[in-house]
Simulated assay, not measured.
Amino acid sequence: MRTSTRWAALAAVLAVVASTFTATTAAAQVPQPYCGTVALWGVEQSGRLSLYLHLGAEKGDHKWERRRFVGTGWNGTVLAGNGDVLYFVPEGTGELRRYRWDGEEWETFDGAEYEVIGHGFDRYVGEGRTLAVVGESFIGIDDTGDLRIYKRMNDEWTNAAGEVIGTGWDVFDRVVPSNGEDYYAFDSDGNAYLYRYNSYLKQWEIQAKHIDTGWGDFTNVVSAGSGVLYATTTDGLLLWYHYHYGWAYDGIPRHVGEGWNGVTAVVSANICSPHPG
């Protein structure tokens, strides 16, 4: 779908009301994932951290609980793991920290609000690089273009040096890993590609499958798993997409939020399931 078509359609949707949007025939062919309540974390440029609970993640409805401020000083790279676990690489360091939110406050580790579980992860921070987590698997793409996976089990690294599963990934502006070992890759022209890896066979099952155009204007794209993607626009809109061998609502985004100017959205890529394989 071309950018002009997508944004013209979105404008028409917003001119009515997002909640009154009627699904097309194509939407009915895309199976609905199970997401429950999706925790979206918002990191402001000042380092202030907020928690947003999206109640309409399965269909792309504009339904939320009230935003809650949960911390300051989050200047750096923030990742969301399983449950209420966050990982953080502070600016100017390669230290990988683990935090856990219990719903009211941050749990403590020997008196501190976090525990350090790794070092040297700054190699994956910066323009053209990727640092992400799916469950307890950390995905990094450095300036060489190598795609490397680090895995943890029972609070221990199972492959401290990481495993290279791909090369040449520096050609993409943005890479968004998801559950089901899917990777959504976006180039400088706004093209979206799907990759899928099989860690058991140690081979790629899907490579460079072109699935859309017009993704070059977003300030941020994150996956909640099972083909559910959130994207933020330059004017602060939060949009919802769902992909499964085709796009829900014929690729027309669902407007699910606003006020995301200067806010980086962070979400666990393991929330929605089952993954439409």
Rank of each mutant, 00 (worst) to 15 (best):
V134T: 13
E65I: 00
A161T: 12
L147S: 06
S4P: 00
V176F: 10
F218T: 06
A192G: 14
E163F: 00
G92E: 10
N75P: 00
A23P: 14
V228I: 14
S50Q: 11
V256K: 03
A185R: 02
D155K: 11
G128R: 13
P33T: 12
V263T: 15
T233A: 02
S226R: 01
A12Q: 14
A23F: 07
V30I: 15
A185N: 03
D110A: 11
G42A: 15
L79G: 07
Y124N: 04
D212E: 11
V171D: 07
R148H: 01
T3V: 04
H275R: 03
V256W: 05
A161V: 11
K63N: 06
D212G: 11
A160K: 04
G166A: 15
V85H: 05
G111W: 04
A185S: 11
K59Y: 05
D155R: 14
Y193N: 08
P276M: 01
L51K: 08
Y99S: 08
D170K: 13
N270A: 09
A23E: 07
I139F: 15
Y241R: 09
L147C: 06
D170G: 01
D155N: 10
L14I: 11
W7M: 13
E115R: 09
L229V: 13
N179Y: 05
V70H: 02
A39C: 01
F138T: 10
I271L: 11
R2E: 13
N220K: 07
G246H: 13
G120E: 08
W215K: 10
F186Q: 10
T5V: 12
R254M: 09
A8I: 10
Q45D: 11
L194F: 09
I139H: 15
T5S: 06
L229Y: 07
A192P: 01
R68D: 04
W215Q: 11
G277H: 12
E156Y: 03
D61M: 03
V17H: 07
G190E: 07
G83Q: 03
D110H: 08
A132I: 07
L147A: 15
E181K: 14
F138I: 12
